[in-house]
Design a protein around this nucleic acid. Structure first.
Lengths: 211, 211
DNA sequence: CCCACAATTTGCGCACCACGCATCAAATGC
DNA sequence: GCATTTGATGCGTGGTGCGCAAATTGTGGG
Protein backbone atom coordinates (compact mmCIF):
# COMPACT_ATOMS: atom_id res chain seq x y z
CA UNK A 1 0.00 0.00 0.00
CA UNK A 2 2.66 2.46 1.10
CA UNK A 3 5.94 2.14 -0.72
CA UNK A 4 9.10 3.08 1.12
CA UNK A 5 8.20 3.42 4.77
CA UNK A 6 10.98 5.15 6.71
CA UNK A 7 10.51 8.81 5.74
CA UNK A 8 13.79 10.51 6.35
CA UNK A 9 13.50 13.62 8.49
CA UNK A 10 14.94 15.61 5.62
CA UNK A 11 12.53 14.07 3.15
CA UNK A 12 9.61 14.75 5.43
CA UNK A 13 10.61 18.37 5.86
CA UNK A 14 11.03 18.71 2.13
CA UNK A 15 7.59 17.30 1.52
CA UNK A 16 6.12 19.59 4.15
CA UNK A 17 7.76 22.61 2.57
CA UNK A 18 6.44 21.64 -0.84
CA UNK A 19 2.94 21.24 0.49
CA UNK A 20 3.17 24.49 2.43
CA UNK A 21 4.18 26.41 -0.68
CA UNK A 22 1.48 24.75 -2.74
CA UNK A 23 -1.18 25.44 -0.14
CA UNK A 24 -0.11 29.05 0.22
CA UNK A 25 -0.13 29.54 -3.53
CA UNK A 26 -3.59 28.05 -3.89
CA UNK A 27 -4.94 30.09 -0.98
CA UNK A 28 -3.60 33.34 -2.38
CA UNK A 29 -4.92 32.49 -5.82
CA UNK A 30 -8.38 31.87 -4.39
CA UNK A 31 -8.23 35.20 -2.57
CA UNK A 32 -7.45 37.08 -5.77
CA UNK A 33 -10.04 35.28 -7.86
CA UNK A 34 -9.80 33.88 -11.39
CA UNK A 35 -9.05 37.24 -12.99
CA UNK A 36 -6.35 38.32 -10.57
CA UNK A 37 -3.86 35.53 -11.06
CA UNK A 38 -1.24 38.02 -12.21
CA UNK A 39 -1.54 39.75 -8.85
CA UNK A 40 -0.35 36.66 -7.00
CA UNK A 41 3.33 37.52 -6.81
CA UNK A 42 6.03 35.02 -6.10
CA UNK A 43 7.09 37.10 -3.11
CA UNK A 44 3.63 36.79 -1.60
CA UNK A 45 3.56 33.03 -2.04
CA UNK A 46 6.99 32.64 -0.49
CA UNK A 47 6.13 34.94 2.38
CA UNK A 48 2.84 33.14 3.04
CA UNK A 49 4.67 29.82 3.05
CA UNK A 50 7.42 31.11 5.31
CA UNK A 51 10.26 30.53 2.88
CA UNK A 52 12.45 32.72 0.73
CA UNK A 53 11.41 33.48 -2.84
CA UNK A 54 14.47 31.61 -4.04
CA UNK A 55 13.36 28.50 -2.16
CA UNK A 56 9.92 28.70 -3.73
CA UNK A 57 11.59 28.72 -7.10
CA UNK A 58 13.58 25.72 -6.02
CA UNK A 59 10.40 23.67 -5.75
CA UNK A 60 8.29 25.11 -8.53
CA UNK A 61 9.23 26.88 -11.73
CA UNK A 62 5.96 28.71 -12.20
CA UNK A 63 3.06 29.99 -10.14
CA UNK A 64 0.68 27.72 -11.99
CA UNK A 65 2.70 24.67 -11.09
CA UNK A 66 2.68 25.61 -7.42
CA UNK A 67 -1.03 26.33 -7.36
CA UNK A 68 -1.89 23.02 -9.03
CA UNK A 69 0.68 20.96 -7.13
CA UNK A 70 -1.95 19.39 -4.93
CA UNK A 71 -4.05 18.26 -7.88
CA UNK A 72 -0.97 17.08 -9.72
CA UNK A 73 0.26 14.98 -6.82
CA UNK A 74 -3.17 13.45 -6.43
CA UNK A 75 -3.50 12.66 -10.11
CA UNK A 76 -0.08 11.04 -10.10
CA UNK A 77 -1.30 8.35 -7.72
CA UNK A 78 -4.30 7.30 -9.77
CA UNK A 79 -2.49 4.34 -11.31
CA UNK A 80 -1.58 3.01 -7.87
CA UNK A 81 -5.21 3.39 -6.81
CA UNK A 82 -6.30 1.13 -9.65
CA UNK A 83 -3.62 -1.40 -8.80
CA UNK A 84 -4.93 -1.61 -5.26
CA UNK A 85 -8.30 -2.92 -6.49
CA UNK A 86 -8.86 -6.69 -6.30
CA UNK A 87 -7.75 -8.45 -9.45
CA UNK A 88 -11.03 -10.35 -9.86
CA UNK A 89 -13.03 -7.14 -10.21
CA UNK A 90 -14.09 -6.38 -13.80
CA UNK A 91 -12.10 -3.59 -15.35
CA UNK A 92 -14.89 -1.04 -15.56
CA UNK A 93 -15.92 -1.58 -11.95
CA UNK A 94 -12.32 -1.44 -10.79
CA UNK A 95 -11.69 1.82 -12.64
CA UNK A 96 -14.90 3.37 -11.36
CA UNK A 97 -14.18 2.36 -7.79
CA UNK A 98 -10.57 3.49 -7.98
CA UNK A 99 -11.41 6.86 -9.54
CA UNK A 100 -14.31 7.59 -7.22
CA UNK A 101 -12.37 6.58 -4.16
CA UNK A 102 -9.29 8.44 -5.25
CA UNK A 103 -10.95 11.75 -6.07
CA UNK A 104 -13.48 11.92 -3.24
CA UNK A 105 -11.33 11.21 -0.18
CA UNK A 106 -11.52 13.82 0.95
CA UNK A 107 -14.21 15.62 -1.02
CA UNK A 108 -12.22 18.11 -3.11
CA UNK A 109 -12.24 21.78 -2.20
CA UNK A 110 -14.87 23.47 -4.33
CA UNK A 111 -13.23 26.89 -4.23
CA UNK A 112 -9.86 25.54 -5.23
CA UNK A 113 -11.20 23.42 -8.04
CA UNK A 114 -13.37 26.24 -9.33
CA UNK A 115 -10.42 28.58 -9.25
CA UNK A 116 -8.35 26.14 -11.28
CA UNK A 117 -11.04 25.21 -13.78
CA UNK A 118 -12.06 28.82 -14.46
CA UNK A 119 -8.58 30.23 -15.03
CA UNK A 120 -7.12 29.35 -18.43
CA UNK A 121 -3.52 29.19 -17.32
CA UNK A 122 -4.34 27.04 -14.32
CA UNK A 123 -6.57 24.82 -16.40
CA UNK A 124 -3.63 24.21 -18.68
CA UNK A 125 -1.51 23.17 -15.73
CA UNK A 126 -4.27 20.92 -14.40
CA UNK A 127 -4.49 19.39 -17.86
CA UNK A 128 -0.81 18.58 -17.71
CA UNK A 129 -1.37 17.00 -14.32
CA UNK A 130 -4.15 14.78 -15.61
CA UNK A 131 -2.04 13.78 -18.57
CA UNK A 132 0.82 12.82 -16.29
CA UNK A 133 -1.60 10.43 -14.63
CA UNK A 134 -2.46 8.71 -17.89
CA UNK A 135 0.85 6.89 -18.18
CA UNK A 136 0.71 5.02 -14.86
CA UNK A 137 -3.01 4.50 -15.31
CA UNK A 138 -2.47 2.95 -18.71
CA UNK A 139 0.21 0.70 -17.25
CA UNK A 140 -2.12 -0.46 -14.53
CA UNK A 141 -4.87 -1.13 -17.08
CA UNK A 142 -2.48 -3.04 -19.31
CA UNK A 143 -1.28 -5.11 -16.39
CA UNK A 144 -4.81 -5.89 -15.28
CA UNK A 145 -6.02 -6.86 -18.74
CA UNK A 146 -2.83 -8.62 -19.78
CA UNK A 147 -2.44 -6.27 -22.72
CA UNK A 148 0.83 -5.23 -24.23
CA UNK A 149 0.78 -1.41 -24.36
CA UNK A 150 3.33 -1.47 -27.15
CA UNK A 151 1.07 -3.47 -29.45
CA UNK A 152 -2.40 -2.39 -28.43
CA UNK A 153 -3.70 1.15 -28.02
CA UNK A 154 -6.45 0.04 -25.67
CA UNK A 155 -4.74 0.88 -22.35
CA UNK A 156 -3.55 4.33 -23.39
CA UNK A 157 -6.81 5.28 -25.08
CA UNK A 158 -8.86 4.07 -22.14
CA UNK A 159 -6.65 5.93 -19.70
CA UNK A 160 -7.03 9.10 -21.73
CA UNK A 161 -10.79 8.65 -21.92
CA UNK A 162 -11.00 8.10 -18.17
CA UNK A 163 -8.91 11.20 -17.49
CA UNK A 164 -11.14 13.18 -19.82
CA UNK A 165 -14.25 11.90 -18.09
CA UNK A 166 -12.86 12.95 -14.72
CA UNK A 167 -12.15 16.38 -16.10
CA UNK A 168 -15.64 16.76 -17.54
CA UNK A 169 -17.12 15.50 -14.30
CA UNK A 170 -15.20 18.16 -12.42
CA UNK A 171 -16.59 20.88 -14.66
CA UNK A 172 -20.09 19.54 -14.27
CA UNK A 173 -19.78 19.23 -10.52
CA UNK A 174 -18.72 22.86 -10.30
CA UNK A 175 -21.44 24.13 -12.62
CA UNK A 176 -23.98 26.33 -10.88
CA UNK A 177 -27.17 24.52 -10.01
CA UNK A 178 -25.53 21.17 -9.53
CA UNK A 179 -26.44 19.49 -6.26
CA UNK A 180 -25.11 15.98 -6.78
CA UNK A 181 -22.06 14.83 -4.85
CA UNK A 182 -18.88 14.53 -6.84
CA UNK A 183 -18.95 10.74 -6.66
CA UNK A 184 -22.29 10.59 -8.45
CA UNK A 185 -21.16 12.90 -11.24
CA UNK A 186 -17.97 10.90 -11.63
CA UNK A 187 -19.93 7.66 -12.00
CA UNK A 188 -22.21 9.18 -14.61
CA UNK A 189 -19.28 10.51 -16.61
CA UNK A 190 -17.33 7.27 -16.42
CA UNK A 191 -20.37 5.27 -17.49
CA UNK A 192 -20.13 6.95 -20.87
CA UNK A 193 -16.60 5.79 -21.61
CA UNK A 194 -16.28 2.52 -19.70
CA UNK A 195 -18.76 0.46 -21.75
CA UNK A 196 -16.04 0.33 -24.36
CA UNK A 197 -13.94 -1.68 -21.92
CA UNK A 198 -16.39 -4.60 -21.94
CA UNK A 199 -16.92 -7.06 -24.73
CA UNK A 200 -19.45 -9.27 -23.00
CA UNK A 201 -22.72 -7.67 -23.95
CA UNK A 202 -24.69 -4.77 -25.34
CA UNK A 203 -24.50 -1.44 -23.63
CA UNK A 204 -27.38 0.89 -23.13
CA UNK A 205 -25.77 4.34 -22.99
CA UNK A 206 -27.08 5.82 -19.77
CA UNK A 207 -29.18 8.87 -20.54
CA UNK A 208 -29.18 10.35 -17.10
CA UNK A 209 -30.57 13.76 -16.24
CA UNK A 210 -28.91 16.34 -14.15
CA UNK A 211 -30.30 19.35 -12.26
CA UNK B 1 -18.53 25.44 -45.83
CA UNK B 2 -16.63 28.71 -45.51
CA UNK B 3 -18.15 31.26 -43.21
CA UNK B 4 -17.49 34.92 -43.88
CA UNK B 5 -16.21 35.16 -47.42
CA UNK B 6 -14.74 38.62 -48.12
CA UNK B 7 -11.37 38.46 -46.36
CA UNK B 8 -10.42 42.02 -45.67
CA UNK B 9 -6.95 42.91 -46.86
CA UNK B 10 -6.07 43.85 -43.31
CA UNK B 11 -7.47 40.61 -41.98
CA UNK B 12 -5.57 38.62 -44.56
CA UNK B 13 -2.31 40.35 -43.70
CA UNK B 14 -2.95 39.77 -40.02
CA UNK B 15 -3.55 36.10 -40.62
CA UNK B 16 -0.44 35.86 -42.77
CA UNK B 17 1.64 37.53 -40.07
CA UNK B 18 0.28 35.19 -37.45
CA UNK B 19 1.07 32.16 -39.56
CA UNK B 20 4.51 33.49 -40.40
CA UNK B 21 5.36 33.95 -36.74
CA UNK B 22 3.98 30.53 -35.85
CA UNK B 23 5.88 28.85 -38.66
CA UNK B 24 9.10 30.62 -37.75
CA UNK B 25 8.71 29.68 -34.11
CA UNK B 26 8.07 26.04 -34.94
CA UNK B 27 10.98 25.92 -37.36
CA UNK B 28 13.41 27.39 -34.85
CA UNK B 29 12.14 25.05 -32.15
CA UNK B 30 12.75 22.07 -34.43
CA UNK B 31 16.24 23.30 -35.15
CA UNK B 32 17.10 23.51 -31.46
CA UNK B 33 15.55 20.17 -30.58
CA UNK B 34 13.38 19.17 -27.65
CA UNK B 35 15.99 20.04 -25.04
CA UNK B 36 16.89 23.45 -26.38
CA UNK B 37 13.56 25.18 -26.19
CA UNK B 38 15.01 27.78 -23.84
CA UNK B 39 17.46 28.72 -26.57
CA UNK B 40 14.66 29.81 -28.89
CA UNK B 41 14.62 33.49 -28.04
CA UNK B 42 11.75 35.77 -28.82
CA UNK B 43 14.12 37.98 -30.81
CA UNK B 44 15.04 35.07 -33.04
CA UNK B 45 11.42 34.19 -33.71
CA UNK B 46 10.55 37.77 -34.53
CA UNK B 47 13.59 38.16 -36.76
CA UNK B 48 12.86 34.91 -38.58
CA UNK B 49 9.28 36.01 -39.15
CA UNK B 50 10.36 39.45 -40.33
CA UNK B 51 8.54 41.39 -37.63
CA UNK B 52 9.55 43.29 -34.54
CA UNK B 53 9.71 41.50 -31.19
CA UNK B 54 6.92 43.73 -29.98
CA UNK B 55 4.71 42.58 -32.83
CA UNK B 56 5.43 38.97 -32.00
CA UNK B 57 4.20 39.61 -28.51
CA UNK B 58 1.13 41.26 -29.96
CA UNK B 59 0.08 37.95 -31.47
CA UNK B 60 1.31 35.47 -28.89
CA UNK B 61 1.99 35.81 -25.21
CA UNK B 62 4.43 32.94 -24.94
CA UNK B 63 6.84 31.00 -27.11
CA UNK B 64 4.89 27.83 -26.55
CA UNK B 65 1.71 29.41 -27.82
CA UNK B 66 3.44 30.57 -30.98
CA UNK B 67 5.04 27.20 -31.64
CA UNK B 68 1.76 25.35 -31.19
CA UNK B 69 -0.39 27.92 -33.00
CA UNK B 70 -0.71 25.74 -36.06
CA UNK B 71 -1.94 22.76 -34.09
CA UNK B 72 -4.22 24.96 -32.03
CA UNK B 73 -5.84 26.54 -35.06
CA UNK B 74 -6.36 23.14 -36.62
CA UNK B 75 -7.86 21.68 -33.46
CA UNK B 76 -10.21 24.64 -33.18
CA UNK B 77 -11.92 23.66 -36.42
CA UNK B 78 -12.64 20.07 -35.47
CA UNK B 79 -16.21 20.84 -34.45
CA UNK B 80 -16.91 22.42 -37.83
CA UNK B 81 -15.44 19.37 -39.52
CA UNK B 82 -17.93 17.15 -37.75
CA UNK B 83 -20.79 19.47 -38.66
CA UNK B 84 -19.86 19.18 -42.31
CA UNK B 85 -20.55 15.44 -42.29
CA UNK B 86 -23.93 14.31 -43.65
CA UNK B 87 -26.57 14.15 -40.95
CA UNK B 88 -27.65 10.60 -41.86
CA UNK B 89 -24.23 9.19 -41.07
CA UNK B 90 -24.07 7.33 -37.73
CA UNK B 91 -22.26 9.27 -35.05
CA UNK B 92 -19.24 7.03 -34.78
CA UNK B 93 -18.68 6.96 -38.53
CA UNK B 94 -19.17 10.70 -38.75
CA UNK B 95 -16.66 11.35 -35.97
CA UNK B 96 -14.14 8.95 -37.46
CA UNK B 97 -14.44 10.45 -40.92
CA UNK B 98 -14.30 14.00 -39.60
CA UNK B 99 -11.27 13.36 -37.39
CA UNK B 100 -9.37 11.39 -39.99
CA UNK B 101 -10.09 13.91 -42.71
CA UNK B 102 -9.32 16.82 -40.47
CA UNK B 103 -5.98 15.61 -39.14
CA UNK B 104 -4.58 14.03 -42.29
CA UNK B 105 -5.08 16.80 -44.87
CA UNK B 106 -2.30 17.38 -45.25
CA UNK B 107 -0.39 14.61 -43.51
CA UNK B 108 1.00 16.36 -40.42
CA UNK B 109 4.67 17.23 -40.22
CA UNK B 110 6.43 14.46 -38.34
CA UNK B 111 9.26 16.65 -37.09
CA UNK B 112 6.94 19.35 -35.79
CA UNK B 113 4.60 16.92 -34.09
CA UNK B 114 7.49 15.01 -32.56
CA UNK B 115 9.01 18.23 -31.30
CA UNK B 116 5.74 19.20 -29.65
CA UNK B 117 4.96 15.79 -28.17
CA UNK B 118 8.44 15.30 -26.74
CA UNK B 119 8.81 18.66 -25.05
CA UNK B 120 6.88 18.95 -21.77
CA UNK B 121 6.10 22.64 -22.08
CA UNK B 122 4.95 22.30 -25.66
CA UNK B 123 2.92 19.23 -24.83
CA UNK B 124 1.12 21.29 -22.22
CA UNK B 125 0.28 23.89 -24.81
CA UNK B 126 -0.88 21.26 -27.29
CA UNK B 127 -3.03 19.81 -24.54
CA UNK B 128 -4.66 23.19 -24.10
CA UNK B 129 -5.26 23.31 -27.84
CA UNK B 130 -6.95 19.92 -27.87
CA UNK B 131 -9.07 20.92 -24.92
CA UNK B 132 -10.17 24.09 -26.68
CA UNK B 133 -11.46 21.84 -29.45
CA UNK B 134 -13.59 19.81 -27.07
CA UNK B 135 -16.18 22.53 -26.56
CA UNK B 136 -17.17 22.99 -30.23
CA UNK B 137 -16.86 19.27 -30.79
CA UNK B 138 -19.22 18.55 -27.91
CA UNK B 139 -21.65 21.09 -29.31
CA UNK B 140 -21.56 19.44 -32.71
CA UNK B 141 -22.09 16.02 -31.13
CA UNK B 142 -24.99 17.32 -29.05
CA UNK B 143 -26.57 18.88 -32.09
CA UNK B 144 -26.18 15.73 -34.13
CA UNK B 145 -27.59 13.46 -31.45
CA UNK B 146 -30.26 15.88 -30.24
CA UNK B 147 -28.80 15.82 -26.77
CA UNK B 148 -28.97 18.68 -24.31
CA UNK B 149 -25.38 19.30 -23.15
CA UNK B 150 -26.67 20.91 -19.98
CA UNK B 151 -28.52 17.78 -18.89
CA UNK B 152 -26.40 14.98 -20.31
CA UNK B 153 -22.67 14.48 -20.00
CA UNK B 154 -22.52 12.35 -23.13
CA UNK B 155 -21.40 15.04 -25.61
CA UNK B 156 -18.68 16.48 -23.42
CA UNK B 157 -17.37 13.11 -22.30
CA UNK B 158 -17.36 11.77 -25.83
CA UNK B 159 -15.59 14.88 -27.11
CA UNK B 160 -12.96 14.50 -24.40
CA UNK B 161 -12.53 10.82 -25.20
CA UNK B 162 -12.14 11.57 -28.90
CA UNK B 163 -9.59 14.27 -28.19
CA UNK B 164 -7.70 11.87 -25.97
CA UNK B 165 -7.75 9.20 -28.63
CA UNK B 166 -6.35 11.63 -31.18
CA UNK B 167 -3.58 12.51 -28.76
CA UNK B 168 -2.70 8.88 -28.09
CA UNK B 169 -2.81 8.16 -31.81
CA UNK B 170 -0.35 10.96 -32.38
CA UNK B 171 2.06 9.51 -29.83
CA UNK B 172 1.73 6.07 -31.36
CA UNK B 173 2.21 7.36 -34.88
CA UNK B 174 5.43 9.06 -33.82
CA UNK B 175 6.74 6.07 -31.91
CA UNK B 176 9.86 4.56 -33.48
CA UNK B 177 9.11 1.46 -35.52
CA UNK B 178 5.66 2.56 -36.53
CA UNK B 179 5.03 2.32 -40.26
CA UNK B 180 1.28 2.79 -40.47
CA UNK B 181 -0.10 6.01 -41.91
CA UNK B 182 -1.61 8.41 -39.42
CA UNK B 183 -5.12 7.74 -40.68
CA UNK B 184 -4.85 4.05 -39.80
CA UNK B 185 -3.58 4.75 -36.30
CA UNK B 186 -6.33 7.30 -35.79
CA UNK B 187 -8.99 4.78 -36.79
CA UNK B 188 -7.58 2.17 -34.44
CA UNK B 189 -7.51 4.60 -31.54
CA UNK B 190 -10.99 5.94 -32.20
CA UNK B 191 -12.37 2.41 -32.45
CA UNK B 192 -11.63 1.99 -28.75
CA UNK B 193 -13.75 4.91 -27.60
CA UNK B 194 -16.47 5.19 -30.22
CA UNK B 195 -18.27 1.91 -29.49
CA UNK B 196 -19.69 3.72 -26.49
CA UNK B 197 -21.54 6.01 -28.85
CA UNK B 198 -23.66 3.18 -30.27
CA UNK B 199 -26.47 1.37 -28.55
CA UNK B 200 -27.57 -0.78 -31.46
CA UNK B 201 -25.47 -3.86 -31.03
CA UNK B 202 -22.58 -5.67 -29.39
CA UNK B 203 -19.09 -4.38 -29.82
CA UNK B 204 -16.06 -6.53 -30.23
CA UNK B 205 -13.20 -4.37 -28.95
CA UNK B 206 -10.70 -4.45 -31.78
CA UNK B 207 -7.51 -6.12 -30.61
CA UNK B 208 -5.33 -4.88 -33.39
CA UNK B 209 -1.60 -5.35 -33.50
CA UNK B 210 0.92 -2.73 -34.35
CA UNK B 211 4.54 -2.94 -35.47
C1' DC C 1 29.96 14.51 22.42
C1' DC C 2 32.33 16.31 18.51
C1' DC C 3 33.46 16.48 13.79
C1' DA C 4 33.47 15.84 8.76
C1' DC C 5 30.18 15.34 5.11
C1' DA C 6 25.88 16.00 2.52
C1' DA C 7 21.75 18.34 1.51
C1' DT C 8 18.91 22.51 1.76
C1' DT C 9 18.06 27.21 2.22
C1' DT C 10 19.11 31.79 1.11
C1' DG C 11 20.95 36.12 -1.05
C1' DC C 12 22.67 38.17 -5.18
C1' DG C 13 22.88 39.06 -9.92
C1' DC C 14 21.76 38.43 -14.72
C1' DA C 15 19.21 37.61 -18.87
C1' DC C 16 14.77 37.35 -20.53
C1' DC C 17 10.02 38.16 -21.09
C1' DA C 18 5.17 40.05 -21.02
C1' DC C 19 2.86 44.21 -21.41
C1' DG C 20 1.29 49.26 -21.10
C1' DC C 21 1.93 53.51 -23.48
C1' DA C 22 2.93 56.70 -27.09
C1' DT C 23 3.95 57.13 -31.94
C1' DC C 24 3.99 56.09 -36.84
C1' DA C 25 2.43 54.06 -41.13
C1' DA C 26 -0.91 51.89 -43.86
C1' DA C 27 -5.54 50.59 -45.14
C1' DT C 28 -10.49 51.70 -45.12
C1' DG C 29 -14.68 54.44 -45.82
C1' DC C 30 -16.73 58.57 -47.46
C1' DG D 1 -8.29 63.19 -51.52
C1' DC D 2 -9.08 63.24 -46.49
C1' DA D 3 -10.40 61.78 -41.83
C1' DT D 4 -10.46 57.63 -39.27
C1' DT D 5 -9.54 53.26 -37.89
C1' DT D 6 -6.25 49.54 -37.19
C1' DG D 7 -2.08 47.30 -36.92
C1' DA D 8 3.28 47.76 -36.37
C1' DT D 9 7.08 49.52 -33.84
C1' DG D 10 10.18 51.46 -29.98
C1' DC D 11 10.85 52.19 -25.31
C1' DG D 12 10.50 51.60 -20.47
C1' DT D 13 9.11 48.84 -16.39
C1' DG D 14 7.92 45.30 -13.26
C1' DG D 15 8.46 40.54 -12.61
C1' DT D 16 10.31 35.93 -13.28
C1' DG D 17 13.44 31.83 -13.77
C1' DC D 18 17.72 30.28 -12.73
C1' DG D 19 22.97 29.83 -12.09
C1' DC D 20 26.30 30.55 -8.50
C1' DA D 21 28.32 30.64 -4.04
C1' DA D 22 27.94 31.19 1.02
C1' DA D 23 25.41 30.13 5.18
C1' DT D 24 22.49 26.95 7.71
C1' DT D 25 20.89 22.52 9.09
C1' DG D 26 20.47 17.37 9.10
C1' DT D 27 23.32 12.81 9.04
C1' DG D 28 26.60 9.38 10.18
C1' DG D 29 31.12 7.87 12.23
C1' DG D 30 34.60 8.06 15.83
Amino acid sequence: MNDGEAPDLRTRHKQATREAIGAAALRLAIEQGPNGLALVRVNDIAAAAGVSPRTYNNYFSSREEAICAFQADRARRLGAALRSRPAEEPLDQAITAAVVGHFTTPEPDRAGLRMIMSTPELEGEALKAFTMAEGPLAEAIAERTGTDPARDLFPQVTAAAVAGAVRVAGRCWLSPGNTDPFAAVLRRALAHVLPATRSDGPHEPPRETQG
